[in-house]
């Protein structure tokens, strides 16, 4: 039995100290995943806490043949998707400022690609591009690209079939390419 297995067994029997150790062992990895999925430190913190709470309350449903880390990973993805959907809905219900255009994203006051690239803000642009993905697209992309999970496994995590998961990854890549194309061209000009 691994350390995780022992701790899970004891935590399931009600030993909170064992669960504390599981939190200590896994929270940093879970934070990195949550950050990739949400793009914000504050949101990632919320997701990490929610994921551990959900895990604790569901310990009796944990299948001991699985790895605790994999199970927690899946819970985190679900928490992050719920969080992103909730954030989108809440933002949509807020009244915009009086002079703020409703379709504000059609109007850009941002600096152009050249200035952004030269000031090292390309990371910001990548984060914006990721932020334009739907929760499903972002989760599918993050799990394939950063977590390097096979598409079939991602489908199982997201509760969708392989073909739909593939299309979520395709859509995500297509959107990223659309958003990032001007910055890549700009990089080409600068490198030439």
């Amino acid at each position: 039995m691994t350390t995780d297995d022992n701790l899970v067994t004891q935590a399931t029997a009600g030993d909170q100290e064992s669960f504390r150790q599981l939190v200590e062992l896994h929270s940093r990895d879970i934070f990195r995943l949550a950050y990739r999925l949400t793009g914000s430190r504050e949101d990632a913190d919320d997701v990490v806490q929610e994921a551990f709470l959900r895990a604790y309350r569901s310990l009796h449903r944990f299948d001991s043949r699985s790895r605790f880390g994999t199970w927690l990973h899946r819970i985190t993805v679900n928490c992050a998707m719920d969080h992103l959907r909730r954030t989108q809905r809440e933002a949509s219900r807020r009244e915009p400022a009086e002079h703020e255009p409703i379709l504000a994203n059609q109007i850009s006051f941002e600096p152009g690609p050249e200035r952004l690239a030269s000031s090292g803000q390309i990371e910001l642009q990548v984060e914006r591009a990721l932020g334009n993905l739907s929760p499903i697209e972002r989760a599918a992309f993050v799990l394939r690209h950063f977590e390097q999970l096979p598409i079939a496994d991602i489908g199982r995590q997201l509760g969708s079939r392989t073909s739909a998961t593939k299309h979520a990854v395709f859509r995500a890549v297509r959107k990223l390419r659309h958003e990032l194309a001007p910055w890549m061209e700009n990089q080409d000009v600068r490198t030439a």
Binding site: Q88, A91, N105, Q106, S108, S134, P182
Partner: peptide
Amino acid sequence: GSRVQRLNPTTPPPTTPP
């Protein structure tokens, strides 16, 4: 779906016009 998502005011503003 893709256009609606781009027009969605809760997504961060892109710097290229959609």
